[in-house]
Amino acid sequence: MSAPDRDGGPLEVRGVVRRYGAVTALDGVDLDVPAGATVALLGPSGCGKSTLLRLLAGLEAPDAGRITLAGEDLTAVPPRRRGVGMVFQDFALFPHLDVGANVAFALVEAGWSRAARRDRVAQLLDRVGLAGAERRRPHELSGGQQQRVALARALAPHPRTLLLDEPLSNLDRALRQDLEGELRELLATLDVRAVYVTHDQQEAFALGDVVALMRAGRIRRVGPPAALLDAPGDVWTASFLGVREVLPAAVGRRLGFGGPVLLRSDALTPDPGGRAFTVERVAPLGEELAFDLHDPDADVHLRWVGRPRELPAAPPGAGEVLRLRVPDTAWTPLEDAP
């Protein structure tokens, strides 16, 4: 365990570059992880997010750039002295050790007494809902239980930073949602600095105080989830986040914008005096109806979802007209960066 004053500072990544032969996995990354905060690194596979995590852990060294924690340069510090705890995508539990010995692994290295280890292990297993599982073997556990053990093992020595590498991606959907909730609660109460790598947007937005969006070895945008959704900034980000409706540059120019533009279809409201859209298709979506619409004037296709009772009359069918008001706030210009 380290002194509290060092724990208080931010983890800073500055200009970090990592190459594998001709491939540049990280191309000048800057990132701040404040104490107590959870940063979600979100991006498609191959964007470099797992590499960045391995650099933070010290499992690999950057080709250029620095990693500091509260001003202390960590770049050349080996993983065992960084005070990190890491949860691996494939759990990486030691198959030759039982659950208790897995959780206590770091405590042995840190020289804890037998009694202190036993107490800490019991406390952590209780915390992750596996009280009394000390003597079980990893292969006897379900995937979710293995992931809980991996989390307990990473937290055991009170790490300054918790690194999570797609911890839920090997689990099935229902379990993933349960564990996501548990993780969120845990991260909030532990007051540990955490970096959470995922390719799942929902997970990133649920767990991250800040979401850092990565693409092709660079951090594209950083911000709180709501801010990212409100102002995705460029076409790629908006598309990756699934924000509707991204209109390409040609359409944007036709509508009088400088380039591509975001049309928030959820800002559109039924209005008898509004713009006329031709309904191409209607499909039920739970209690709501999804309309595939076409604006013949601007030649814009978009999908609008609404409750039938919000509509002034009976819902229009295919080929009929739906009138919607398009407020100015529905439009957000986007950068045309590739």
């Binding site: 391995r54 852990a57 010290g58 499992l59 080996p78 993983p79 065992r80 002295r81 960084r82 990190v84 705890g85 890491m86 691996f88 494939d90 990486a92 539990l93 030691f94 030759h96 692994f105 770091a106 042995v108 290295e109 840190a110 093992r153 990473a154 020595p157 690194l163």
Partner: peptide, 21 residues
Amino acid sequence: PHLRDAAATLGAGPLRTAWRV
């Protein structure tokens, strides 16, 4: 390899990792 990574983040140096993992 992934188990050695895990051991490294849990505070074990190369020799300790060879011995314990």
